[in-house]
Design a protein around this nucleic acid. Structure first.
Lengths: 106, 106
DNA sequence: TTCTTCTATCGCTATTTGACGATGGAGTAG
DNA sequence: CTACTCCATCGTCAAATAGCGATAGAAGAA
């Protein structure tokens, strides 16, 4: 994953409300979680929640699927898992490079 | 790690230049990497780089230590490793909760 | 002391973000 | 057809962010 893409995803996750939305979607029963449901879990206006959802959508972290009269949202588990791997790799990679310098010095 | 803290760190990482700075610090030889060194690796003004460094400092991702006449920076490997664990846990946790719903449905 | 280097900070501007209410289109129910 | 619900989008505002040049203080060098 490119640094630019990674930064985009990170920025999308860089707001506590958006992390909350991800958790709400993870806890909700299979697929039938619409914007109104999420809004009722948060002390925010519907339009604000909709905006945050859009950010997560654009970052590819969630997906939308029409469910009768509603738009329902669910996590994109594949992307989340890939992200977990990328982050873990990035951070331990950085830490490892750092450690290598120290070792090299000895 | 709290969602608020996690979001703060994510936001700090949500800019490609700051990711670059982390990589630069990881590659640089032991400890003697000052603001000017970083600036020379980037197409940005020194003041701008200094600001980005401050963001990383405030997020606790790097640390400053005076080295003679300069201020040198290095990664906080402990924090990075902790972050790797936290991210990995968060993402796989979300994905797992999502998968559990599907299984429960069956 | 005087000079030079380093760099954090200030002031400024332009852009982006976060929040809100209002609105209108799409679709269901009656 | 007539409600009614859902919700994405628009317009607006305040605040934060990202960029720059200028500057001043700290500290080593001469």
């Amino acid at each position: 994953m490119q640094d630019t893409d990674l930064a985009n995803v990170m920025r999308a996750l860089g707001h506590p409300v958006r992390l909350s939305i991800l958790r709400i979607l993870a806890d909700q029963k299979q697929g039938d979680c619409c914007c109104t449901d999420v809004t009722q879990c948060l002390p925010l206006a519907q339009s604000t929640v909709s905006q945050h959802i859009k950010v997560l959508l654009d970052a590819g972290l969630i997906e939308r699927h029409a469910r009768g009269t509603r738009n329902c949202y669910s996590l994109r588990s594949d992307r989340l898992e890939a992200l977990g791997v990328a982050c873990s790799g990035l951070f331990t990679g950085l830490a490892a490079a750092d450690a290598a310098k120290v070792a090299e010095l000895a």
